[in-house]
Write a protein that binds this DNA or RNA. Sequence first.
DNA 1: AATTATGCATAAGAAAATTATGTATATTTG
DNA 2: CAAATATACATAATTTTCTTATGCATAATT
Lengths: 112, 112
Amino acid sequence: MSNQKLFKGSLQTIILKLLERNAKMYGYEMVQHVKQLTNEELNITEGALYPALHKLESEGFVEVEVLKVGNRMRKYYSLTKSGVTETSDRIGEMSRFLETMEQLITSKTKLA
Amino acid sequence: MSNQKLFKGSLQTIILKLLERNAKMYGYEMVQHVKQLTNEELNITEGALYPALHKLESEGFVEVEVLKVGNRMRKYYSLTKSGVTETSDRIGEMSRFLETMEQLITSKTKLA
DNA sequence: AATTATGCATAAGAAAATTATGTATATTTG
DNA sequence: CAAATATACATAATTTTCTTATGCATAATT
């Protein structure tokens, strides 16, 4: 809620990670999933999610399959081959980032 | 270098944290400091730093003292009273964010 | 003498989000 | 049964925050 802005820049990585663990997911499902996983800490907005998904698709990292469930449309996303590679890379970057940030905010900081 | 975008949104927190540990710092010094602390992983650009400092100042979290060293100007920043409080808050938010992100990218993710 | 380093600053543009809408079906609740 | 909430997608306008480019000026190095 409050610190949503810190998540800026990490949405694509989060999506890719979700798809690494769940072969097929649709947008609305991702939002609910993340909400539960983070105990409401991160609420992905649709205005951010859908453009991000479209971008990942246009970059060839995910592909879409449209299914009709009941009378409602669902667009199921899954990782492409290059998406699998990209996911590893992004998670690696994220890990390094987290480690760096951790050091920055815990360090005594004083240098020479 | 590569994953600079993950740092988006965390610059103010980094600045505040630096000033929590070093009573007085000037802009150029912060850039060098962070470069060393992160082993070149994070290179703060001046175009980001100076506006951020000015914003923190206008919000009353830091105050400035201009010194002339040799023939060159230095603007030393330090935390105000409300800046000290704000710093604790921001670091708390950052910690929660880091923890949440850590869980997200390591979790098995599969829910019901 | 020219380049790099120190030290500040701002403007133009890009990237990625928020907020506000819009459409439509399904389910729950009063 | 009507109204509200949940499901499911989408996009446009705006905001935030950054990168890139530029500018000025002094100091140190090559």
